[in-house]
Amino acid sequence: MTKKFTKDHEWVQVDGDVATVGVTDFAQSQLGDVVFVELPDAGRVLEKGKEAAVVESVKAASDVYAPVSGTVVEANQSLVDDPSMVNSAAETDGWFFKLQLKDASELDGLMDEAAYKAFVEESH
């Protein structure tokens, strides 16, 4: 069960053929206090790199992209009720949605934790 990261600051964790997706702790620190999230409905088919969800702070709105392709099986309802979980638990309870993976090989192009850390340090 490894965790992978994108250059757009999403993380994805795979368990069998189900991937859990969220935004990184670094991303939440840049956003400020999150006040609203808009999540995809179950059943929606997402394409890698395309808009999947929206996360808003008071002064910023950002699109969250699907790190891999697949079909949404569940959105995190408790995040909708308490968006501050993006700030307090970005990489754990603050997950956004779960996907039925379409093509596991898409994961290969993503960064591991160390690579992502280095990426953040060098680009920000």
């Binding site: 757009d8 600051h9 999403e10 935004v23 991303a27 840049q30 956003l31 400020g32 206090d33 996360v55 702070s57 002064k59 910023a60 709105a61 950002s62 699109d63 969250v64 992209y65």
Partner: peptide, 9 residues
């Protein structure tokens, strides 16, 4: 995600 630099306290 599309990062943006408008986040602020």
């Amino acid at each position: 995600m599309s990062m943006n630099n408008q986040g602020r306290p």
